[in-house]
Structures are given as C-alpha cells and as structure tokens.
Design a binder for these strands. Structure first.
Lengths: 343, 343
DNA sequence: GTGAAAGCGCTAACAG
DNA sequence: CTGTTAGCGCTTTCAC
C-alpha cells in the first residue's frame, strides 16, 4: 500500500499540489489534458488521499454518527435495528459519507461516548435513535450544536429535527379495521409507557374507539414490553376481560398473545382476532398469518440521512420534521378474509 | 460547543501546548500540580481535542472498520449481524476505539467502498465478515497491508488472520446426538455450497455418520438457502426419502422444515426429529421447542476486535487464528426428552 | 519537568 | 488555468 502524498503525485505529474487537489475534488479550472495526466499518475500509483489531513484542512469529515442507546440495543431480537441501519448505510454510501456506529449498551458506555462523539473533527452530524423519555444524551447533543437528527419522536421535540413513523395513525387504522369487521371488545397490548412509540400507538387505539363513540375500557388495556414473552403474559391477564379482538403494539407481542390464546383453547380469529405491528418476517408464516402494520424502516433511515445532510448544508433552523406513512397488511389473524360485516 | 484549541487551553493554564498534550495523553513528566491545573481548565471550558488533527499528527485514528458484504447484509432477517455488531461495538467502547460500519449491499457499493476504506488516515484496522468463496475484497485488503481480521473461515486462509466458530464440531455434535438417540435415517438441510459455513457444517454431519460406520446417503442431503422458506421447500423434497431425523444448518431453515413436516401430517419428534443451528430467540418458543446449536456470536465479535488490536500493535505476522466452541441446546424437537435409547 | 519548533498531508485563498 | 503560501490542531523530538 502506498504512502504517497499529494506532493509526490504533483511531482510525478509535473504540476503543483494545488492542481492535484483540484483534480481530486473535481474543481473546475483545470485544463483537460492536465487533469488526465494527473488522474493517470493517481491511477498508476494507487494513491489515496489521507482522510485525516483532508478533514483537518477542510473542516469536514464526511462522516456521520449513528447512536443507538441501550433501550434499543437490547431490542436486538427484532429486525428494526438492522433494517434501520441498512437504510442509513445505503444513504451514506449513496452520498459518499462514512458511517460511525455507537452502541450505548451500558451506563459506562454512555459516559464514554459523549466526549467521543462531540469531538470536533470526527463527525459532521449525528443520527440519534430516541423516543425515550428523559433522553439526556439528546439534550447534550442539542446543546453542543452539532447537526442532529433524532429518529423517533422525542418526548420534548422543541427545536429538534426528527423523523418518525406515523404511529398514531397506524394504530388508528389497525383498530378502525377491527371495528369495521364488527368486533365489540377490542383490547390492546401496549408498549411500556416510557416511550413515545407506545404512547402514540395507544393514542391511535383510543382515538379510533372514541371516534366511533365507543368507551375506553381500562380492563382491555394491558402493558407489555414489546417481547414475545411480554405479549404472552399480557394476553393471559387480558383473557378474563373476554376481548374478541386484540391490537398488539408489536409483532413479537402479537405472537406471544397468539400463543396464550391457543393455550387457552381459543381460536384465532374466530374467538379472538389479533393484529400486530411491524410486519416482521415471521408474521407472514405465523399460524394463522398475522395481520399487521408495515413500517418503512429502511426508507426512514435513508430519509434521516438526507435530512441530516440538509441540516449540515443549510443550518439547523428551522427544525425539520418528517412523518412517514405505514401500511395495514391484512392476513388471516384479523378475520377479514373469513367474515364480513357492515362497515 | 467549544471551538477551542490546545493553544487556548495552554494559554489559560499558563503552560505550553506540549504540556497540555502530555496531560491529554497521560504522558508522565508532568508535575502533579500542573496536571491538575490543566485538567481544571479543560473541564471548565468543555474542551475536546480535534480528532482529525490528532490522527494526522499521530498517524493513528483509533477507528476500526467493520465490513459486511452483500451476502450478509441480505441475511438481515437473522440476528447474527446485530449480535456480532454488538460484540464488536462493545469491544470498541471498551478499548476506546470508534467503529465505522460499511454495508456492501450492491455491486455499486462494492466499487465505492474499497477506495474509501483503504484511504490512509481513516482506519487503523478492518474486520471483514467473509466466508464467501472468491472474496475479492479480502484479497485486495490483504494486499493493501492494512491490519485485517476476517470473521468466518476464508476459503483460502493463507496468511490471513481469522476467527470462526467451530462449525465442523458443532454439526458433528448435533448429528452425534441424533445418532445416540437411535435415529437411523438422519437427513441434513445444508446451506448453499459457496460458503465455508455450509461446507463445514456439512462436513461435521458426514463425519459423525462415518465415524459410526454409517453410509452417507445422498438422497438425505438437500440444500437450502438459510431462510425459512428455503427450509420449507428443502424439507418437502426430503420427505419422500423418509428421514426419521433432520439436521438443519440454520434455525430459520429448521423452522421452515417443521412447517413442512406439520403440513405433511407428521409429528415432531415422534415421526421426524429436528435439530437446528443458531439458537435464535424463537427457537425456544417454537412448537415444539427446537433443539439447536448455540454460537457465541457476540463474544466472537469482541474477540475479533482484540485480535485486530493485537495485529495493529504487534504486526500481522504470524497470522492469528481463533476457533470458538459452540454448545448443543437440547429441547423437545430432537426427542431426547421423550425417548431413551442406547448410546 | 517544560517549552520551542518542526511537521503530519491536505485545502483554500490569493496572486498571477 | 496554475502555482505560492498559509494554515487546519495536534504530536513529538529536541533542547534546556
């Protein structure tokens, strides 16, 4: 591998450093013949410019940071994180940025990470997966003035640019679908109350019921932790209330709920209909196949990068907000394919 | 956020740049009182050294790259990637390195990525997920002399440092377990033949049979693509050969196989026993719970980083090799908990 | 134990 | 269109 510098290339091509730099950065004002000569030398020598030197001189690192806090890195069992990362990585490739990944999996990490990511000369901007209430890191990052895009609605969104899925509407649509199918006692297995995702999905549930003049029955609302096991126990505690349908705030919980329903000797959807949220791969092959909400996770990651680049180029004011639509995927577990009823 | 430089800190602390630098880098030869004074100024001002300048001057970026090629990034449906990444990220945090992530999801990406990662001044070393036959990127990286650790046994391991799970032994143990349980017609759903993982697992299967004096029956060997659907179709094509047990080279394929078995009206494990590979979260809650091989994926990622750091510190020769052990997790699908038979 | 000075390799005015 | 000249902010000899 070469340890060549701009200087070497310049000498070999018989031009000055500046000219080589111009060629490298696609600046105009270089005679075509000279440009070609320089490119030839670069190709022959296998020269690559030094990233650190470039960053230092230009004050741009062409690097973005993705910060995933503990709450997320523990949800490794669901493909949300990989999908999101994939979308983000694709966008980085597309726009010629490098992606730095920060997984905050312990309190110790958290202390170490802030100084690292706030170091100047390392990152041009940061993507932060949030949605947790009382996110200290977000506040510090915001205060540090580094371009920041939060993924997931922050609890306090003042002045922060963020992107999120329309969770309220998604849940609203799922529950409305169940109402249209004629279910009378529609329960929900919500997520933990300390995340905006859970709050929003629960609100969509409530809104759908209220708009149809239904009362919210607290005995039909139970909290899970987004896991299969959580859904299983939540469903068990829900059974005495005799729901005829249940909207789970995640597919994992929906699958757990289905397990509990089957174990209780009940049928899906005849006795209890189930709707999930996420459209994980196994939703389609569950027994019965799960009706659920599909989120555009990778596109969301891609878009997050585009917002961040916009912030970097054009300043952080005003804050940008993007809310992405979801899609209801109807399969067997909601009973739509078996029964009909008045809308 | 501060735009302070070393110079500023030096002035405020009444010392020279060099001294501040020494404090920052924990060098000896600084009077305790001075050190404290400097640290105070740093704390009060919220100063963070500029990463690019540091890298340029010291020729170390304290950054590692993780490259995941297409073949892997498409396997996003299984938690291998997140777990591996988690282990790697933890090690990076632990050793105060930053992790750069490169997802190569298209041929276009591949072309763009090599110049980027081989740029000097960006990465101190690279982790490459491989195991694909004919990995061009690996050869180029190897030739570029940048410290490199390959994750997964490379097809041609000459001169390359790598870390892998002991796939041969793992498969050997799984199949030996089935043999001990008395099964006579043990089939396997192997992975695609272009990866060393598949080759190794298939070899473990064959070795276990041969050591017990059994013949390898080609009609009991079928190839899948590591996905649920692949396992489903593979199992269907296996049924006419009337196996009484099947070893699937991944849990996803095992689940697909179970679906095919159930659809054929057969029972697990009474009619056909099933053993998987991976111990994914859903293995434990499958019906019946899946006997499988658990791999230490996060620890493997962690260890990979340690090897890479060793390479960076002490040179790449001789190549380091680490093979990690796996564990057979016995559940219901193999029948061990129901039937007994002579070992 | 501390400071002065020389770079690390590049970009970006500014001349010409 | 091209070359000259300053830095970017830090580390690291080398003196003292």
């Amino acid at each position: 591998m070469s340890n060549l510098t701009l200087e070497d290339i310049a000498r070999q091509a018989g031009v000055s450093r500046s000219t080589v730099s111009r060629v490298l950065n696609d600046h105009p004002n270089v005679r075509e013949e000279v440009r070609r000569r320089v490119l030839d030398v670069i190709r022959q020598t296998g020269y690559h410019p030094n990233a650190a030197a470039r960053t230092l001189a230009s004050q741009r690192s062409l690097m973005l940071g993705l910060v995933l806090p503990r709450s997320v890195s523990s949800i490794f069992s669901d493909p949300y994180f990989p999908r999101l990362t994939q979308g983000i990585a694709q966008a980085c490739n597309h726009y010629n940025y490098t992606l730095a990944l920060f997984l905050v999996s312990s309190a110790e990490d958290e202390a170490k990470i802030y100084p690292r990511i706030s170091r100047r000369g390392l990152l041009d901007g940061i993507l932060l997966q949030s949605g947790q209430i009382g996110d200290q890191l977000m506040d510090r990052l915001l205060a540090s003035n580094i371009p920041l895009v939060v993924i997931g609605r922050p609890f306090n969104p003042d002045g922060v640019s963020y992107i999120d899925v329309d969770n309220v509407n998604a849940a609203y649509n799922a529950v409305s679908h169940l109402i249209r199918l004629g279910y009378q006692r529609i329960a929900t297995i919500a997520g933990p109350d300390n995340s905006t995702v859970s709050i929003d999905r629960k609100e969509g549930y409530a809104r759908a019921l209220q708009e149809r003049g239904r009362k919210i029955d607290p005995s039909l609302i139970v909290e899970g932790d987004f896991t299969e096991a959580g859904g299983y126990y939540a469903m068990q505690s829900l059974l005495p209330a005799r729901p005829d349908a249940v909207f789970a705030a995640s597919d994992a919980m929906a699958i757990g709920a289905m397990r509990a329903i089957h174990e209780a000797g009940l049928r899906i959807p005849e006795d209890i209909a189930v709707v999930g949220f996420d459209d994980l791969p196994f939703a389609a092959t569950a027994t019965p196949p799960l009706t659920t909400i599909r989120q555009p996770i990778a596109p969301l990651g891609f878009k997050a990068v585009e917002i961040l680049l916009d912030l970097i180029e054009n300043g952080a004011q005003p804050p940008r907000r993007v809310i992405m639509d979801t899609e209801l995927v109807v399969r067997d577990s909601c009973g739509a394919l078996k029964r009909r009823s008045p809308g």
